[in-house]
């Protein structure tokens, strides 16, 4: 549990920032602005990771999401200018509001009602070293498969983006 004024207020601040920027991704009419809100959302999630003493993941989040994915999505928006660069909803809008609202209600209900077996211990002292050991120990095979996946995705996107010639 996080207790004390500092951690608790940091949680609510970051939570409001994360939800608010995610909502702005939905509301912003200009797709480019939506991407900038998405990048702010990634930063807020990195702050939440830091609050849960997952400092390695917070740094990886900033590097991979803010640095790489954010710039990639920005490039994608700028390379495909069209009348639909306006961030509008399609025919599924009403159904999606219903589905999203029901899902959020159910998940909040489950989170509040489940008797979680929480530990009273504090956060992790240091996670980078332990995650590194786990990745070459118990999770070595998934780690190798992930690297193969990255290579395949890279070659695939080069082939797709290069075109016919």
């Amino acid at each position: 549990m996080l207790s004390g004024f500092g951690p608790v207020s940091a949680f609510w601040l970051l939570a409001v920032l994360a939800v608010g920027s995610a909502l702005m991704v939905v509301v912003a009419r200009n797709l480019l602005h939506a991407v900038l809100w998405l990048i702010l959302h990634f930063v807020a999630v990195a702050g939440l990771f830091l609050l849960m003493t997952a400092e390695f993941l917070a740094m990886a989040q900033v590097l991979v999401y803010v640095g790489a994915v954010g710039v990639l999505v920005l490039f994608a928006v700028m390379l495909t200018p069209s009348p639909w660069s306006e961030n509008t909803e399609g025919r599924l809008g009403g159904v999606a509001v219903l589905l999203g609202g029901c899902l959020a209600a159910v998940l909040i209900f489950v989170a509040a009602r489940t008797p979680w077996a929480q530990v009273t211990a504090g956060g992790f002292a240091s996670t980078a070293q332990a995650i590194g050991r786990a990745l070459i120990g118990r999770w070595a095979l998934p780690f190798e498969i992930a690297s193969v996946l990255l290579v395949v995705a890279m070659i695939g996107s080069i082939v797709l983006a290069r075109g016919e010639d």
Binding site: A18, S85, E89, A104, A111
Partner: peptide, 26 residues
């Protein structure tokens, strides 16, 4: 603040993402 709040926050964000993925035209 415990796991309840974090899971509830995660649920809200997931629902916003689901709406965006389903409803957007682009």
């Amino acid at each position: 603040v415990g796991v309840q709040q974090f899971v509830a926050l995660s649920g809200v964000l997931f629902a916003i993402g689901l709406y965006t993925a389903l409803a957007k035209r682009n």
